[in-house]
Nucleic acid binder design. Structure first.
Lengths: 196, 196
DNA sequence: TCATCTGATCCAGGATGATGTATCATGGCT
DNA sequence: AGCCATGATACATCATCCTGGATCAGATGA
């Protein structure tokens, strides 16, 4: 319902997920209820300013006021240091790949209606995008996306989509539990459309 | 009442004032009520996230999520380009002068209790700080501040304070109506304490 | 002095944020 | 199969936002 704050809220959610913090854990740190956070993140209710500040502060973020003119500069600054390893030498080809895939899924949901599998695929892609994947892992993702593309208009695509969703899910789980010691985050703040 | 959002709200207010936008004008642009805005700015009520976004967008600002670590960098970026003319060759000596004066007034209010004149002086200083003053005008301000300093502990300081307040007020009025054509603003976003 | 503009304040009423507590389906782990 | 954690929902209750007026004192300019 609240169009203006969508971007900020979804950014917060993505960062929470990328930091592997559960809604319950966040609720304790922020002093809010888990149900509250769930409703905020799913867009079912609009937070008060201070609630949102509590939430983001608990995620080690600050809400700042920036002149519109400077938004691109700040965005660049944030993005640059958010994912230092991944973006240093390469031209983030993975990021583009994910972006294309996510667009594809979104389109398919529009055309053929959303299914549970498409939802899972979308969500998992959104998660994997934030993670540093090995070449092998990225190879797997590439194949899965290609398969998705190939069968996107197929008649009996359903079971295939289910399989793709499961594969992505498995990959997600493996990366999530792989190296909890490293500062896994590597999130980026850049995808929300900041421009109204 | 809402400690977390104080800083953001007062920033917004200062920018509104520096841009010479009235609460009513802002209320129309933002789609809120004037009474609403007044209550928000005076801390009598806590805005919803989207209300605050509407408000700041109408002031040509964006609310952004920034990793705490990057806050100083962003702050520097914003500050640097907020007052380009004033800070280019000089080491903003005027700014420091105002800062000292404001600290002085605040201290006096603590020690001797606040008076209407002190309040007026404080508010006017806060306004004048954001304005590009000519050398002559700055000279006047300097003298007034010096006078304030000199009589700060004097027994019969009251009439002198009144005089200082009036002088500052007059200066404020003259600058406010002087050049409505130029992009007077030159606000800065730096004074709120961003760190909790 | 009169007209105007500003920000603060009041009030009634409807909308909605926020809390607690509790339940539920899913998915992963053992 | 059982267990645990996750996120989504439900519901009652209370608090607060937010609107829509309207008014007010103060400062400014004509």
């Amino acid at each position: 319902m609240a169009y203006q704050s969508e971007s900020l809220i979804s950014q917060a959610r993505e960062i929470r997920e990328a930091s592997a913090v559960s809604q319950r854990a966040l609720s304790e740190r922020a002093g809010l209820t888990q149900s509250h956070i769930s409703q905020i993140e799913s867009g079912k209710m609009e937070p008060g300013l201070s609630s949102f500040i509590d939430m983001t502060r608990a995620l080690d973020l600050e809400l700042m006021l920036v002149p519109k003119k400077l938004v691109p500069a700040v965005l660049g600054l944030v993005k640059a240091q958010a994912t230092p390893d991944m973006h240093i030498h390469a031209g983030q080809p993975n990021d583009k790949r994910f972006a294309r895939a996510e667009r594809l899924v979104k389109k398919m949901k529009q055309l053929y209606g959303s299914s549970a599998d498409l939802d899972r695929i979308e969500e998992t892609l959104r998660f994997l995008r934030r993670v540093n994947l090995s070449d092998q892992e990225m190879q797997l993702v590439r194949e899965l996306i290609a398969r998705l593309e190939r069968y996107k208009a197929s008649a009996q695509a359903a079971p295939i989509f289910r399989d793709i969703a499961q594969n992505l899910q498995r990959l997600r789980n493996s990366t999530a539990h792989a190296a909890p010691s490293e500062p896994r985050p590597a999130y980026s703040l850049d995808d929300g459309d900041v421009n109204a």
